[in-house]
Design a protein around this nucleic acid. Structure first.
Lengths: 243, 243
DNA sequence: TAGATTGTTAATCGATTAACAATC
DNA sequence: TAGATTGTTAATCGATTAACAATC
């Protein structure tokens, strides 16, 4: 539970939390454009949400704005960064250095957002020893020692479907508290002090497929409707002629 | 808009749609375990949601179950697959064959879910000509011709931040209707017949960071509370002694 | 038939939006 | 001071959950 501005425990809804990184990105864009202040109204137009929602969201954490002025972009950026723990530096390891694991290891944005990659593990001898952004891929059986010697906050799991239960159990036993799971299997662990974010890329792609189909269907319906109407007009014309 | 079971246009909420791929995955798991029937109650326990929600969700599309019996797993799996258009086969191209692009190109799950990769494009001469799962990486300037010769439903964008506006415009001009955007920039296009899914991996990671911090804070508060209490007990003991 | 479980309506809950007094 | 815009309360909207009659 987070302390809100009155120092009271107030549970902040997950819907609000999930919007914070998006605010953070938009504010970074504004900074890049040298925009120093912004009103909830203008931000709402850029982001495609209501100004009300922005003010409501931000006020879960404190009054970051100023009446008649709006919000100072840099201050707000820093505040949201603090809420998200960007400056807290989380240490991460990647387990599974296949395509996805390597892609994530190369993703420099994570560094900027407070996540430091300190280890990569796999079992494939062909890639062990290879370095990605100065981090060497090690064999899985070195992971125990590594985690004893280094504090690890988050394990990023990009191992195949069938290996997930075993790897998750191992990771839990090593005292790692955060799991970012890219495996196709939803991960649930009975240890209630472990926090898991499951990522299912293909879910998002399937939603896109659904929307495309809906659009296509709507267009077909529209076309059929138009065809029907023009047919009506034609028939009416013929009927008139026949009179 | 989807036709519901009464043949009426009923707008189905995006919240429901976004849960469908998850149902689909769980049903695939059940099939793999040779489970042929399931009740909303049992499925709810597996998935960690309410049985009410499952029945409510499924009934947006039709009565797939049977009173007293539950749902036939295979039938339900197929029905949800149809709703999501799994059998409709969407053709896709990947633009940007960096680490993420190549990782996605190698992701065999997409094939299973109805997405066929037919092209990969990049500008890096070092990787042009390389084949991923039998699809050759071509130069971006071949994309126009390619899209004229082949119908493309979806473009998967994994190009760097600064290139996104230009690439998106190009893609729109080629008549591609679905964009799956992995760039760090939110994509919005003014063409209202183009459908976009923005994916922001680091957003999800930041939410994980937030939750870890909350957990840590809660534990610290608890510890401080316990320390305070044991201090009270000690003081009470001393006060008694002093009497 | 009795038991189980759906489909569906009604009740509840929570999230979003609107409105406006406070204030810079 | 006048204008702008926040912080915050109240109203609305939509999504989730509960309940139960229908029915396999």
């Amino acid at each position: 539970m987070s302390l809100n501005k009155d120092g009271l425990n107030k549970k902040i809804s997950i819907a609000v939390i999930r919007r914070l990184p998006r605010y953070y990105r938009y504010l970074a864009d504004l900074l890049r454009m040298d925009i120093t202040r912004i009103s909830s109204k203008e931000l709402s137009q850029r982001m495609g949400i209501t100004a009300s929602q922005i003010r409501q969201d931000l006020n879960c954490f404190g009054g970051f704005g100023q009446q008649g002025y709006g919000y100072n972009v840099e201050l707000l950026y820093r505040e949201i960064g603090n809420i998200l723990g960007v400056s807290d530096r989380f240490t991460t390891i990647i387990i599974g250095a296949g395509n996805m694991g390597q892609a994530l290891a190369n993703y420099e944005n994570f560094e900027k957002r407070g996540f430091t990659l300190i280890g990569i593990f796999d079992i494939n001898p062909q890639i062990i020893g290879k370095k990605i952004r100065n981090v060497e891929i090690k064999h899985m059986n070195e992971m125990d020692d590594f985690c004893r010697d280094n504090h690890v906050d988050i394990a990023i799991l990009t191992v195949p479907y069938q290996n997930i239960p075993e790897v998750a159990k191992k990771v839990a036993s090593l005292g790692i508290k955060g799991l970012w799971n890219f495996s196709a299997m939803d991960l649930k662990l009975s240890y209630d002090d472990i926090i898991i974010e499951n990522v299912h890329l293909s879910d998002s792609l399937m939603v896109l497929g659904y929307k495309l189909n809906e659009r296509r269907k709507a267009e077909e319906t529209k076309k059929a409707e138009e065809a029907r109407k023009s047919e009506e007009v034609r028939e009416a014309g013929e009927a008139k002629k026949a009179e």
